[in-house]
Amino acid sequence: MDLGMIPAFNDDGYLPAGVHRATLDEVAARFGQQSEWRRVRAQSLGWLVDLARRAGALRLIVNGSFTTDRPEPNDVDCVLLMGPEFPRGAQAEEQLQEGLPFIELKIVEAEEFAFLVDDFFATDRRDVVKGMIEVVL
């Protein structure tokens, strides 16, 4: 699946405002190639995507410094919206809760997912608007 190019960073080093959908391959190509530091984070994101699919997740948002132009980002901040069948796979859910290296994961209900994506994570600590990535599951 090719969802089109992830947009360029703006002058603040952020993606343009909004949620930009992309495949895992597109995300890895854009954000996970520039350094070993980024490569290991992209690899861990791949594991998360696999677990999220098996656990019955509906949407996965990636934000934070990993999706900026920073050469050495912090952990990959992720928000996961689970489906109504959750927990579908007990093993996958257990692994999600155990955590993954370099992944800062929030698992939330629909209303809180909307709050985090549309409000809380949509601006930085200077109140500057920033975009984020939705990895297609």
Binding site: M82, F86, K106, I107, E109, E112
Partner: peptide
């Protein structure tokens, strides 16, 4: 969904 609520609260509280 009590389990989902627990996970949600845990996530928000960590923030």
């Amino acid at each position: 969904n009590a389990h989902m609520r627990e996970l949600t609260l845990r996530s928000l509280m960590s923030l």
